[in-house]
Simulated assay, not measured.
Amino acid sequence: MPRAIYIDAKGNQFEADIPVGQNLMEGAVDNMIDGILGECGGVMACATCHVYVAKEWQDKLPPASEREDDMIDMAIEPEENSRLSCQIEMTEELDGITVYLPRSQF
């Protein structure tokens, strides 16, 4: 099972095995990782699953949809590498993906 690495604003690292097909937001919630709330359940209505994708993983993800980009614009402190974790579906190729949690979600 592929693994995701979540690093919070204090530098604490958490790892979670996430089944292929599940998104990173669900994986964080299922593994009780603080900093990703997913209040809307993954329907892109809240941006409480905002993450910063590590540089080496950005090109391995499909581009964000226009709707995702619109939600990221409403997130606190969006960056060039911002994504909604509910829109990143785990695949075998993403084994080891690293995302950083915004300070605003700490």
Rank of each mutant, 00 (worst) to 15 (best):
E68D: 11
Q87A: 00
K10R: 13
E39D: 15
E79W: 02
D30W: 08
E66Y: 06
E39V: 03
M71R: 09
M32R: 14
D30K: 15
N81F: 04
P19F: 09
E39L: 05
D34P: 00
F14E: 06
G38N: 08
T98V: 15
G11C: 03
V51W: 08
Q87D: 03
A45Q: 14
G41P: 08
D8N: 14
P62L: 07
L24I: 12
M32K: 15
E15F: 01
I76C: 04
C40R: 04
E66L: 11
Q22F: 08
R3Y: 00
V20A: 07
M44Y: 07
N31S: 14
A54K: 14
R3M: 12
I88A: 05
I7F: 02
K55Y: 13
E26Y: 02
G35D: 06
N31V: 02
A75I: 04
D34N: 12
R67Y: 14
T48G: 02
Y52N: 01
A47R: 03
Q13N: 00
Q105M: 13
D70L: 11
I76S: 08
A64Y: 02
A45C: 13
S104C: 14
T91I: 09
C46E: 06
G42K: 01
I5R: 13
I33A: 00
V20L: 02
P102H: 08
T48R: 05
E93C: 00
D73Y: 11
Q22M: 13
Q22K: 13
E79Q: 15
R83L: 09
M1S: 11
A16N: 02
D73T: 10
I36W: 03
V43K: 08
L37C: 00
K60N: 14
Q105P: 02
D73P: 01
I97E: 06
I76L: 12
Y52G: 03
D8T: 05
K55T: 15
Y6P: 07
N31K: 07
D8L: 00
D59N: 14
D17W: 01
M74Q: 13
C46V: 10
A45M: 13
E15C: 00
C86T: 11
V43T: 14
E26K: 01
R3P: 00
R3H: 03
Q58G: 00
G21Y: 11
W57C: 01
C86D: 09
V29C: 03
S82V: 05
G41R: 06
Q87W: 13
G11D: 04
E68N: 03
P102K: 01
L61K: 08
V20P: 05
N31L: 03
V51I: 12
K60P: 00
V20F: 07
Q58P: 00
V53R: 01
L94K: 07
T91S: 15
G96Q: 05
E56V: 02
N31W: 11
A47E: 11
N23S: 04
N31A: 09
D8S: 01
D69E: 15
C46L: 09
S85H: 10
N12E: 15
C46Q: 10
G38F: 11
G41C: 07
V43E: 13
C46W: 10
N31D: 09
Q87P: 09
N23W: 12
E80T: 13
S82H: 12
D69I: 11
G35F: 06
A64P: 03
C40N: 06
E68K: 08
V53Y: 09
V43H: 14
F14V: 05
E68A: 07
